[in-house]
Simulated scan of single mutants.
Amino acid sequence: MEQIKRQRKINTDDSDDMKIKQFHSAHQSISYFEDLSNEIICEIFEYFDFDYIYEIFSNLNQRFVNLIINSNLPIKINISSISKPNFERYYTNIIIPYRHRIKSLRITNIFAVNIILSPQDNISKLTRLETLILTNISSSYLRNLQYLINLPKLSSLTIIYKGYTKFDRAKIYHQIFQLPVLKYFNVLLGVDSTPILSSMSFATNKYSSIEHLVIKNNIELDTLYVILSYVPQIRRLSISFYAWIDISFGFNYSR
């Protein structure tokens, strides 16, 4: 009888040992975010806006402080629904210290454009900026676009606003076509199809590097001919075309 009890105890102990080993084995197979290499974490961070990453990880531990603050990691900035006082703090604490690392910048606030893009010295510090998106920016800030020529890596630009006149549109096109490395231009400038020929002539000796052009506003065919004369390297064209017979249709071209 005693032998049977001892055998049962041994079997129970063996079973407990097996469960403990299985438990430890299962936990050892679990991967934690902190177990990832710095390279992988940096790649993950590139999918998120910098303010989101900064808020969550900057106070976690020294490793993430080094990755976020003391590194050369490219960052994305999205300035959309934010009050002016909050933006001023954001500008002081986030944009100014890390502007040399900004790779992508999206702005939908007029006051943000005036602060970030107005002083020429500010523009010159955005040395890594590749993508710029400006939405709902009024024509009074068109003069700021002239500073974009100082951005050595700006390859993608989006400008969306429905209130521009034909003179505003001509000025914007002239300034954009001077950007040295621009490859992608997405534009919505006004809702009418008033020709801009009177203020914009065909290209003769200065051309743009744009390869992908997206025109979302209505546009006359004659105006389109003028615009295309500036982009001889174009590979893809997408437009909303408004014909004189009051028919709208889409057009896409790739080569």
Rank of each mutant, 00 (worst) to 15 (best):
N114C: 03
P119L: 06
N136W: 11
F23D: 01
Q62N: 14
S29K: 14
S80H: 04
L60S: 14
K9V: 11
I68M: 00
N11D: 12
S124M: 14
Y207W: 05
I82L: 11
S15Q: 05
R63H: 12
E211Y: 05
T108I: 00
Q178R: 07
R63I: 08
F33C: 05
K9E: 11
F50S: 08
N218E: 13
T131P: 01
P195N: 14
V226W: 04
F57S: 03
S25P: 00
F57M: 08
L197N: 12
Q28P: 04
S104R: 07
K206N: 08
N78L: 00
S118L: 11
S155V: 15
Y32G: 10
F111K: 14
C42H: 03
F167C: 03
S201G: 14
Y173M: 08
D222I: 14
T92R: 10
S156A: 06
A26D: 06
I149P: 06
H212L: 14
H174N: 09
K125C: 07
F33I: 13
R89C: 10
C42D: 06
S254L: 04
S209R: 10
P119T: 04
S238R: 01
N114Q: 13
Y161Q: 13
K162D: 11
I40M: 02
I176H: 03
Q3C: 10
K125R: 14
N61C: 15
S201D: 15
N217E: 13
F48G: 01
F48N: 06
Y161L: 11
T194V: 14
F185H: 08
F87L: 08
Q7K: 15
F48H: 05
T131S: 13
M18P: 00
N150A: 12
E2M: 10
D35E: 13
S193W: 00
H174P: 00
F177I: 11
R89M: 12
L157A: 06
R143S: 04
K21N: 08
N109R: 15
Y52K: 03
I82C: 11
V214M: 07
I210E: 02
L213K: 03
T194A: 01
Y207F: 15
L151G: 07
I40S: 08
I96W: 03
E2Y: 15
W244F: 01
R169S: 09
L117Q: 09
N217T: 01
S80K: 03
L179I: 15
L60I: 15
P152I: 12
P152Y: 08
I44E: 02
E211W: 05
S209F: 08
I41M: 09
I210F: 01
Y147P: 02
Y54R: 13
Y225S: 15
T127G: 00
N86G: 00
P152N: 13
L197F: 07
T165V: 07
G163N: 13
L188R: 13
I94F: 01
